[in-house]
Amino acid sequence: MSEGATPRAIVVRDLRVLVTAGASGIGRAIAQAFAAGGAHVHITDVDEAAVADTVSQIPGLSATAGDASSPQDADRAAADVGARFGGLDVLVNNVGVAGPTGVIDSLSDGDVERTIDINLKSHFYFLNRCVPLLRGSTRNPGVVAMSSVAGRLGYGNRTPYAATKWAIVGLVKSLAVELGPDGVRANAILPGVVEGPRMDRVIAARAAAEGAGFDAVRDSYLGKISLRRMVQAEDVANLALFLSSDLARNITGQAISVDGNVEYL
Rank of each mutant, 00 (worst) to 15 (best):
S2E: 14
S2C: 07
E3C: 00
E3Q: 11
G4Q: 11
A9V: 13
A9R: 15
I10H: 01
D14Y: 07
V17E: 02
V17Q: 03
L18W: 02
G22N: 05
S24N: 14
I26T: 10
A31E: 02
F34K: 07
F34P: 11
A36Y: 00
G37H: 07
A39V: 14
T44L: 04
E48W: 02
A49E: 15
V51E: 03
I58M: 08
G60A: 10
S62Y: 03
A65Y: 00
A65T: 15
G66C: 04
S70W: 05
P71C: 04
Q72M: 11
Q72W: 06
D75N: 14
D75S: 12
R76T: 13
A77K: 07
A79Y: 06
G82I: 03
G82K: 06
A83T: 14
R84Q: 13
G86F: 07
D89R: 05
V90L: 08
N93K: 06
G96M: 01
D105V: 12
S106K: 10
L107Y: 03
S108E: 10
D109Y: 09
R114H: 12
D117E: 09
N119G: 02
L120D: 02
K121M: 11
K121Y: 07
F124A: 11
Y125P: 06
Y125S: 08
Y125D: 06
V131F: 05
L133H: 07
L134M: 09
L134V: 08
R135T: 14
S137D: 10
P141W: 05
P141R: 02
G142V: 14
V143Y: 04
A145H: 02
S148W: 00
S148Q: 00
G154F: 06
G156Y: 06
G156W: 02
N157P: 00
T159R: 01
A162F: 05
T164M: 03
A167H: 03
A167M: 02
V169G: 01
G170M: 05
G170C: 07
L171G: 03
V172C: 02
V172A: 00
A176H: 08
G180D: 04
R185K: 15
A186H: 02
N187F: 05
A188N: 01
L190T: 03
L190H: 03
G192T: 11
V194P: 01
E195I: 12
G196H: 09
G196A: 09
R198V: 15
V202D: 08
A204D: 14
A205I: 05
A209M: 12
E210L: 15
E210P: 05
E210K: 13
A212Q: 15
A212T: 15
F214W: 15
V217F: 10
R218N: 10
D219G: 10
Y221S: 08
K224H: 09
S226K: 10
S226R: 13
L227C: 06
V231H: 01
Q232S: 13
A233L: 03
E234G: 13
D235E: 14
V236M: 04
A237D: 06
A240C: 13
F242A: 10
L243N: 05
S244N: 08
S245E: 07
D246K: 10
D246M: 07
L247H: 08
A248G: 12
I251N: 03
T252A: 00
G253F: 03
A255P: 12
A255G: 11
I256L: 14
S257E: 08
N261Y: 01
N261P: 00
V262S: 04
E263Y: 00
E263G: 00
E263M: 14
